[in-house]
């Protein structure tokens, strides 16, 4: 059973539909108990980093305990940003902190027509091997919509450039994160979700 965490950051319908399409057995639990029984945990999220404040406390404790047991964890968009220490978007809210680094605002470049937010399909480079990106070609396109992003660190297995390079995919042990929306990225996105489910 996959646990999909609903902490009120936007709508989960798209992620639900993608999981259903892939035949995944999932729950959106009311309480933290289900996290302890999960074979995998997904933290989705669209919108503002401040929403992750609702994860502070019991949810964070439950997810940390699951991660310590080796349960695979996938953060999507704001859910990926939450894996880091914090974000300049809501400096008062702590991140999960399992990945070093701080989420910062993207830079635009009006002379080149590069705007912030970064909205649309962009390519992911693969600096090294990744279980989450198995079967995904370097340069594959995925769908982004965000104004903040995590830095390229040693945890980065997929980097994307919008003026500056940022971490599009991170991976360490059983912890994974994607800045883009795999549930909205066509066949490439479905393959990435399938890869995560196969690790659960």
């Amino acid at each position: 059973m996959i646990t999909l965490i609903d902490y009120g950051a936007g709508n989960l319908t798209s992620v639900r539909k993608a999981l259903t399409h892939l035949g995944a057995d999932y729950v959106v639990p009311e309480s933290t108990d289900a996290v302890g029984r999960a074979r995998g945990v997904i933290v989705p999220g669209v919108g503002n980093f401040a929403a992750t404040e609702r994860l502070v406390g019991p949810w964070t404790d439950a997810i940390r305990a699951a991660v310590d047991r080796g349960t695979p964890l996938l953060g999507i968009c704001v859910g990926m940003q939450w894996l880091f220490e914090g974000s300049d978007e809501a400096p008062e809210v702590p991140g999960f902190g399992v990945m070093p680094g701080r989420v910062q605002r993207l830079r635009g470049d009006s002379a080149r027509g590069l705007k912030v937010p970064h909205v649309g399909w962009n390519a992911i480079a693969k600096p090294r091997d990744s279980r989450l990106l198995a079967g995904i070609e370097p340069g594959a396109y995925v769908y982004f919509t965000h104004s903040f992003a995590a830095p390229v660190t040693t945890d980065c297995v997929g980097a994307t450039t919008h003026v500056d390079p940022f971490a599009a995919v991170v991976e360490r042990d059983q912890i994974f994160g994607v800045q883009f929306h795999p549930e909205k990225s066509g066949d490439a996105g479905l393959q990435i979700l399938r890869n995560f489910l196969s690790l659960c």
């Binding site: 319908t13 798209s14 539909k17 993608a18 259903t20 769908y143 909205k184 990225s185 996105g189 479905l190």
Partner: peptide, 30 residues
Amino acid sequence: VASEIFLPLTVGGGIRSEADAEAAIDAGAD
């Protein structure tokens, strides 16, 4: 549509209130 394709989906036409938007988003609009 949202159950068939996994691409961004927008719904327009007659979205007049928060309730209209909620209905569209709950049905699968992004």
